[in-house]
């Protein structure tokens, strides 16, 4: 996981797929990262390196979303793979994740 702070946006680039096998570690990392950058006004979860997510991955992203809500900062997902994007569409999460709402299937 790489993080960069650009202007007021904290961009978090996930290293790979977000799955039940790694969410526990990611959760801690995310908490540390958010704690280290209280000045960030936006959080962007960059999924460039992620091909897929499972239910726990979705859960983690939703938890991150809730966390940003709590901290009253913005949140968006960037560069989802086609598969992830399709999943977010079907689950009606794209809007929440700041992705351009596509016409639902």
């Amino acid at each position: 996981m790489q993080t960069t702070l650009d202007a007021s946006t904290l961009r978090i680039v996930f290293a790979g797929d977000i799955l039940s096998t790694n969410v526990a570690a990611l959760r801690t990392e995310l908490l540390v990262t958010l704690g280290a950058h209280p000045e960030a006004k936006h959080v962007a979860a960059d999924l460039t390196n992620s091909r897929t997510v499972d239910s726990q991955g979705i859960n983690l992203l939703l938890a991150l979303y809730r966390e940003t809500e709590r901290r009253q900062v913005g949140f968006r997902v960037e560069n989802p793979s086609a598969e992830i994007r399709r999943l977010f569409d079907l689950l009606n999460l794209s809007g929440r994740f700041g992705l351009n709402p596509a016409r639902r299937p």
């Binding site: 908490l31 938890a63 809730r66 966390e67 709590r70 079907l90 689950l91 009606n92 929440r96």
Partner: peptide, 13 residues
């Protein structure tokens, strides 16, 4: 339509 219930999910902590 789909509604995903995010009320159930807390923050990272």
């Amino acid at each position: 339509d789909t509604a995903t219930d995010i009320d159930e999910i807390g923050g990272l902590e």
